[in-house]
Amino acid sequence: KEMRNAYWEIALLPNLNNQQKRAFIRSLYDDPSQSANLLAEAKKLNDAQA
């Protein structure tokens, strides 16, 4: 469930391009235990690109 939530949050971040989203989501599938960390990194990048 945590992975699914992280997937959708990443997919809906407005300032990431599709390539960036795909990279984060690929990492999510590679290591679901890192969901919270990956989401935090994606949000950080999203904010930096705002």
Score class of each variant (00 low, 15 high):
K1T: 09
K1F: 07
K1C: 13
K1E: 14
K1V: 10
K1G: 07
K1W: 03
K1Y: 04
K1N: 12
K1M: 10
E2N: 10
E2S: 10
E2F: 03
E2Q: 08
E2K: 10
E2T: 10
E2I: 11
E2Y: 02
E2D: 13
E2H: 08
E2M: 06
E2A: 06
M3C: 09
M3Q: 11
M3I: 13
M3A: 08
M3N: 07
M3S: 08
M3E: 09
M3Y: 13
M3D: 07
M3L: 12
M3H: 10
M3R: 07
R4I: 13
R4T: 12
R4S: 12
R4V: 12
R4A: 09
R4G: 09
R4P: 09
N5I: 13
N5M: 13
N5F: 14
N5D: 10
N5K: 15
N5S: 15
N5H: 14
N5C: 12
N5E: 11
A6C: 04
A6Q: 05
A6H: 06
A6L: 11
A6N: 05
A6F: 14
Y7K: 10
Y7N: 02
Y7W: 12
Y7R: 14
Y7A: 09
Y7C: 07
Y7I: 14
Y7P: 03
Y7Q: 10
W8D: 06
W8G: 03
W8M: 13
W8Y: 13
W8E: 07
W8R: 14
W8A: 09
E9M: 15
E9C: 12
E9T: 13
E9F: 15
E9S: 14
E9H: 14
E9R: 15
E9L: 15
E9A: 15
E9Q: 15
E9I: 15
E9D: 04
I10W: 01
I10K: 00
I10N: 00
I10V: 04
I10E: 00
I10H: 00
I10G: 00
I10R: 00
I10M: 03
I10F: 03
A11C: 09
A11K: 15
A11S: 14
A11Q: 14
A11T: 15
A11Y: 15
A11V: 11
L12R: 15
L12I: 08
L12P: 01
L12A: 12
L12Q: 13
L12N: 15
L12G: 09
L12T: 12
L12D: 06
L12F: 11
L13Y: 04
L13N: 01
L13W: 03
L13P: 00
L13T: 01
L13S: 04
L13I: 01
L13D: 01
P14I: 08
P14A: 10
P14G: 06
P14K: 11
P14W: 04
P14Q: 08
P14R: 12
P14T: 07
P14C: 06
P14F: 04
N15P: 00
N15K: 05
N15L: 04
N15A: 07
N15H: 10
N15S: 05
N15D: 04
L16S: 00
L16G: 00
L16A: 00
L16V: 02
L16H: 00
L16W: 00
L16I: 05
N17T: 10
N17K: 04
N17G: 06
N17R: 07
N18L: 13
N18G: 10
N18T: 07
N18C: 12
N18W: 15
N18E: 11
N18I: 11
N18Q: 12
N18R: 09
Q19T: 10
Q19V: 12
Q19L: 11
Q19H: 11
Q19F: 14
Q19Y: 15
Q19A: 12
Q19K: 10
Q19I: 09
Q19N: 11
Q19R: 07
Q19G: 08
Q19M: 06
Q20C: 06
Q20A: 03
Q20E: 03
Q20I: 04
Q20D: 02
Q20R: 02
Q20L: 03
Q20T: 04
K21H: 01
K21G: 00
K21E: 01
K21A: 02
K21W: 02
K21V: 03
K21N: 00
K21C: 03
K21L: 03
K21R: 10
K21F: 03
K21S: 01
K21Q: 02
K21M: 03
K21P: 00
R22F: 13
R22H: 09
R22A: 08
R22N: 10
R22L: 15
R22I: 10
R22G: 08
R22D: 05
A23N: 07
A23M: 15
A23D: 05
A23Y: 15
A23F: 14
A23H: 10
A23C: 10
A23L: 14
A23P: 01
A23G: 09
A23S: 12
F24E: 00
F24L: 04
F24R: 01
F24Q: 01
F24G: 00
F24S: 01
F24M: 03
F24I: 03
F24P: 00
F24K: 01
F24A: 02
I25K: 03
I25H: 08
I25D: 01
I25P: 00
I25F: 15
I25T: 03
I25C: 05
I25S: 02
R26L: 14
R26E: 04
R26K: 06
R26N: 05
R26F: 14
R26H: 05
R26D: 03
R26W: 14
R26S: 06
S27H: 09
S27N: 08
S27F: 08
S27L: 13
S27P: 02
S27I: 08
S27D: 05
S27Q: 09
L28H: 01
L28P: 00
L28A: 02
L28R: 00
L28S: 02
L28Y: 03
L28G: 01
L28C: 03
L28V: 06
L28K: 00
L28W: 04
L28E: 00
Y29S: 06
Y29L: 09
Y29R: 11
Y29V: 08
Y29H: 07
Y29P: 01
Y29N: 10
Y29C: 06
Y29M: 13
Y29F: 13
Y29D: 03
Y29I: 10
D30F: 13
D30N: 14
D30P: 02
D30S: 14
D30Y: 09
D30L: 15
D30A: 15
D30I: 13
D30C: 14
D30W: 12
D30R: 15
D31Q: 13
D31S: 11
D31F: 15
D31H: 15
D31R: 12
D31M: 13
D31I: 07
D31A: 09
D31W: 11
D31G: 04
P32C: 03
P32N: 03
P32H: 04
P32S: 04
P32I: 05
P32K: 04
P32W: 07
P32G: 03
P32M: 06
P32F: 09
P32D: 03
P32Y: 07
S33D: 06
S33N: 07
S33L: 06
S33V: 05
S33M: 11
S33F: 05
S33R: 08
S33P: 04
S33I: 04
S33W: 05
Q34F: 05
Q34C: 06
Q34T: 07
Q34N: 07
Q34S: 06
Q34L: 08
Q34E: 06
Q34I: 06
Q34P: 01
Q34A: 06
Q34R: 10
Q34M: 12
Q34H: 09
S35M: 09
S35L: 10
S35A: 07
S35Y: 14
S35H: 10
S35Q: 09
S35T: 05
S35E: 07
S35R: 09
S35K: 14
A36T: 08
A36E: 07
A36Y: 14
A36K: 14
A36F: 13
A36G: 08
A36M: 08
A36P: 07
A36R: 12
A36I: 09
A36W: 14
A36N: 06
A36Q: 11
A36S: 11
N37P: 03
N37Y: 15
N37A: 06
N37R: 14
N37W: 15
N37G: 07
L38D: 01
L38P: 01
L38W: 08
L38T: 05
L38V: 09
L38E: 01
L38A: 03
L38Q: 03
L38R: 04
L39Q: 03
L39D: 00
L39V: 11
L39S: 03
L39I: 08
L39M: 08
L39K: 04
L39W: 04
L39N: 01
A40N: 09
A40G: 06
A40S: 09
A40D: 08
A40C: 05
A40I: 12
A40F: 11
A40W: 12
A40K: 12
E41F: 13
E41V: 11
E41L: 13
E41Y: 14
E41I: 12
E41D: 09
E41G: 05
A42V: 02
A42G: 01
A42L: 02
A42I: 02
A42K: 00
A42Q: 00
A42N: 00
A42D: 00
A42H: 00
A42T: 01
K43H: 12
K43T: 04
K43E: 03
K43Y: 14
K43M: 08
K43C: 03
K43P: 00
K43Q: 07
K43G: 03
K44T: 07
K44H: 07
K44F: 09
K44W: 11
K44P: 00
K44S: 10
K44Y: 07
K44C: 05
K44N: 05
L45D: 02
L45G: 01
L45W: 03
L45A: 05
L45E: 03
L45R: 03
L45S: 02
L45T: 05
L45V: 10
N46H: 02
N46Q: 02
N46L: 01
N46R: 01
N46M: 01
N46D: 05
N46A: 04
N46V: 01
N46K: 01
D47Q: 12
D47C: 07
D47A: 13
D47Y: 12
D47F: 11
D47G: 08
D47W: 13
D47L: 14
D47E: 11
D47K: 11
A48N: 10
A48P: 02
A48L: 12
A48E: 14
A48F: 13
A48D: 10
A48G: 09
A48R: 09
A48K: 11
A48I: 13
Q49A: 10
Q49S: 06
Q49I: 10
Q49F: 07
Q49L: 10
Q49T: 06
Q49K: 05
A50H: 10
A50T: 06
A50L: 09
A50Y: 11
A50M: 11
A50C: 06
A50Q: 08
A50N: 10
A50S: 11
